[in-house]
Write a protein that binds this DNA or RNA. Structure first.
Lengths: 242, 242
DNA sequence: CGCTTTATTGATCCTCATCAAGGCGGGTGG
DNA sequence: CCACCCGCCTTGATGAGGATCAATAAAGCG
């Protein structure tokens, strides 16, 4: 679709943004932090629809999202896709590639986004010198495992409306951490993509959103979403048939 | 339920078993391997039904399964469980705990099992000295991420019979790697547990198994399972409604 | 040997997928 | 600037797959 726009500055890209706080809340001295910064380069801007990496690409680096929004998806043999996650500024993607040095999913920009590249073998090298950095990498990897297992819980045991509620609460919390409104935000993805992520069809997503609106828990119009009653959403997420 | 039986020998437990080959196919010298072995202690025998760790327990170590079979499960607030995985000899569990130093799931023995304990901070220490070990740890963590994402694909887009087929194929491959028959084995878990793992009810699991048997792809009687036609199972797994 | 747990199978119901039609909106070209 | 088009979304009607409820059988265990 679009080509990434190369960045002019290729070094020390991340020390001035909120990236460090979000991705790397590590106790490091200034000198140590500078060494970490030296690893990280701006990879450039990815326009809406462009691809950061594809399944099958050789794995060489993790990517930190500086600004913007991505989705990751697996394509199965029959050509259908499963969205495995939505990633926003301050999150790290590409960890699937470590296991076999090959990426196992696609990462696609859902809006114009800036990305920093962290060469993985150099990160490992530095991790050996800086224990807090090493520890932090392990936490990030583990956090991804926990996240995925919670989605398994969602997919395995929740009904459509509960899944939507859980999804919106999760988005809300992540926006809040980044200083954005937790109650009013834009959805960056289509109903189809939400559906793929939640194991539902787009019509079901649309209906569930309408129903949450009917219940006065949210208002939704196209991609604009407002949460009217967070506790109501949480209750909705928790409710089971029995 | 049952208490773990303490082991007499608490050191150098793993150098003589097939654990190293399966968990730790790392290029290390004998001396280096000895240092790794020195970390690892036999934690003992866990009887069928006993708990290796529970959600909320402080995280301190990874566990390598020497022999036996475990399940891991998340308990959600309403008390219902989602099985997140089945682990067999040579696999590592406990990685969910790294992110916040607290385990987020329960690990329960599905048969009498022997477990080795790998204190995590000491493993990190040693990883800093032995790059191949560090790299291997990262691969293990990443492999868990990839595994979980494939389950998301299964839960999000497959129908009951396909899920069962995928599950059986996966078990078959893992038994094969361990030198057991890939076509004839015992299921170590109940229909209920399979169902929880696959996002289905136990009756649906039972029916799907009966149907696979009807199609001459497997024979199943209680926990004994035989795969009659692997390629047929694979075809079954791949088929979609459209 | 009797009790409890686990598994199978049938009948019915409900949720969500599917199919279909129409509306809204944003972008493009005349 | 407007008309048109295409992608995205909503809503309705219908049907299928799996959940639920129920009864029975079989197996494991004390």
């Amino acid at each position: 679709m679009h080509k990434p726009v190369p960045s002019n500055s290729l070094k020390a890209a991340c020390s001035t943004c909120n990236l460090r706080k979000l991705c790397l809340p590590v106790n490091l001295s200034n000198i140590e932090m500078a060494r970490l910064d030296a690893l990280i380069t701006r990879k450039g801007v990815y326009r809406h629809g462009s691809i950061l990496y594809r399944s099958g690409d050789k794995f060489q680096a993790l990517y930190a999202i500086r600004t913007g929004f991505f989705k990751t998806q697996i394509l199965n043999e029959d050509g259908r896709e499963q969205v495995t996650g939505f990633q926003m500024a301050g999150e790290i993607i590409g960890m699937d590639g470590i296991s076999n040095d090959v990426h196992t999913c696609d990462a696609v920009a859902l809006e114009d986004s800036e990305v920093c590249e962290i060469p993985f073998s150099r990160l490992e090298d530095l991790g050996r010198e800086l224990p807090p950095l090493q520890r932090h990498l392990h936490r990030i990897l583990s956090r991804e495992i926990v996240r995925d297992q919670n989605i398994m819980l969602l997919l395995g045991s929740m009904r459509a409306e509960e899944r939507l509620a859980a999804f919106l609460i999760n988005l809300s919390q992540r926006f809040a951490v980044r200083g954005y409104s937790p109650t009013s935000f834009q959805l960056r993805m289509t109903r189809q993509e939400i559906g793929s992520y939640l194991g539902l069809k787009l019509e079901t997503v649309s209906r569930a959103l309408s129903q949450l609106q009917e219940s006065k828990l949210i208002t939704v119009r196209n991609r604009s979403l407002e949460i009217l009653c967070l506790s109501g959403l949480q209750a909705c997420m928790g409710k089971r048939t029995r």
